[in-house]
Design a protein around this nucleic acid. Sequence first.
DNA 1: GAAGGTAACGAAATCGATTAAGATTTCCTG
DNA 2: CAGGAAATCTTAATCGATTTCGTTACCTTC
Lengths: 336, 336
Amino acid sequence: MVTITDISRACGVSRATVSKALNGAPDIAPATVERIREQARALGYLPNATARALKVGRSYNIGVLFSDPTGGGISHEFFSTIFENIKTEAERLGYDITFIGKDFGPLSLDFYEHAKYRSCDGVVIASADFSEPAVRRLVESEIPTVTLDYTFEGRTSILSDNVSGMEQLVRFAYENGHRRIAFIHGELTSVTQKRLVSFRRTCASLGIAVPQEYIRQAVYHNPKSSGLETRALLALPERPTCIFFPDDLSFLGGMNELERNGVRIPDDISVAGYDGIPLSQILRPRLTTYRQGAQEMGTEAARLLVEQIEYPDMWLPQQVTVRGELVKGDTIRRIG
Amino acid sequence: MVTITDISRACGVSRATVSKALNGAPDIAPATVERIREQARALGYLPNATARALKVGRSYNIGVLFSDPTGGGISHEFFSTIFENIKTEAERLGYDITFIGKDFGPLSLDFYEHAKYRSCDGVVIASADFSEPAVRRLVESEIPTVTLDYTFEGRTSILSDNVSGMEQLVRFAYENGHRRIAFIHGELTSVTQKRLVSFRRTCASLGIAVPQEYIRQAVYHNPKSSGLETRALLALPERPTCIFFPDDLSFLGGMNELERNGVRIPDDISVAGYDGIPLSQILRPRLTTYRQGAQEMGTEAARLLVEQIEYPDMWLPQQVTVRGELVKGDTIRRIG
DNA sequence: GAAGGTAACGAAATCGATTAAGATTTCCTG
DNA sequence: CAGGAAATCTTAATCGATTTCGTTACCTTC
């Protein structure tokens, strides 16, 4: 391994000089800097992040946490998109990504300990169950964090515009003549709760009455569960003309159930999803949905976390809302 | 931050003793060990991975590389499954995961430099374009690697059983009476090449003639591209009775094209995918496909890499083939 | 009781890089 | 040309943990 010591010997200067030259310190003669840079290149020198981290107390390493058991893992397109963008932005800023898991290693470290053990400069909490003590310990710790779709006192968070998104979907259905809209929502988390409230409020403000049976709860990100609720909706004496699903993936479960019953989309019933994952636009008919700004959420999360890390003094926690976009698709049909 | 120095002061022993006690060295009195362990717990001590890495020359950190532009990224279910399992196994063994990207940071490090900069003990190359010089540089370097679905002289690799998988699919179609089987394959990489050869060989051994027009090339993991080839197949004077797609995701493109032309699956035509991603079994009809052992591939990759790292002497490169499983699904119909 | 053995612990070097403080040389300027 | 500022470079401590090689004290054993 080539170290600054090798360079210093090759150039006949001290290690300090090499370090400073490589880092652009102001008190090294330009000619010397050039000579050192040249040698570094010639020897194939690479700085050692570990050594630097130890000395300066900064690892240039940020942790990411994806651990929501309800499908909020990296295998979901929405989250993998977020992850990709966190990674891209972080790397652009010179930070590496380390995955933070729980029960890490033989010592079974929890999230906080894991992040600390790896000297993460900060952590992006992309999906997690905030009722879990281990998650709370991390978010309440001294480690800088950015939370996605969850606000926490004194912390920075990136929020998807769930209220506005749901409102747009409802209005879109309304404009297409729908007055009997059912909503299968996920278990009540802070996210699904917001969508539910927005759904109710928007319906009310449009003068749409929503019977109790039209509001159903399924398991978030779980097609099978949504399938069951869909069946229940079809059995109602007065069927809805439009069904909102908790998310795009869940819609697939509903879709199967509808097909099995010979109910065509959107001829016989209209549907909408939520998320706007790529898959939803590959299938035909293209799903009407609300595309969350996953790319921007990821990018912003990384950007704000790094900002917080690098300028801790002039830092104030903030809540950033990322706007998504209504994807009209073809599954909400004009009626009435 | 609590360090061994704090513990040593609290216990009135030297730092060396603390280190040894915590690491189970044989020359510390049991009573002392107990006392030190107790204090460590009381003070909330956490070892500093960075410092340890610097001293012992091992970071307990492995890199993962997902960078195939042809859809081999983390957003694909097949690859995210692999990743999840690499991560789980690695963490169980006490290793962290760092994502290796190219053009890293302000210095624009390539893969090798990036891995070296982070002192990765090894790298799992999960998806990459091996014709890329940056990838070759890494795989030819002194850094231990495990390669997925690609063999490289002197390197360990985990291979999916592409030959056997494709053979099983062809035989399954044959047993269901199909004699006119078309195959849309991906661009020729080492993986798709194996499947193509196996397809041809199996067909030949079963006495199935495969006209030139039945073999078509599409872009791997790209639904749109497969849709176009599907259209071409439908236009043939003698349509195939069964179409094999490059992969499950690509099938979706074909599916749309078939539906648009009023061709029903599997009543009018049979189809098969490849990969066995969860999505393929959510949709109805369930896709006939070959499920690659993604979980096992990930687990094995991590396990073998760590083995290689920890016992470099008694190490010999090996090729492990992970068997998958035929998923019969409902899209190949009995005919004839 | 002298020689040697062993158990338990400590001193100090080390990993690679950074950085405050100091040393040396160069260069002005009045 | 003396005095001091400016430019340039070095010394040495430091980050936290590991590890080699002692050292000390206490036993054995003949």
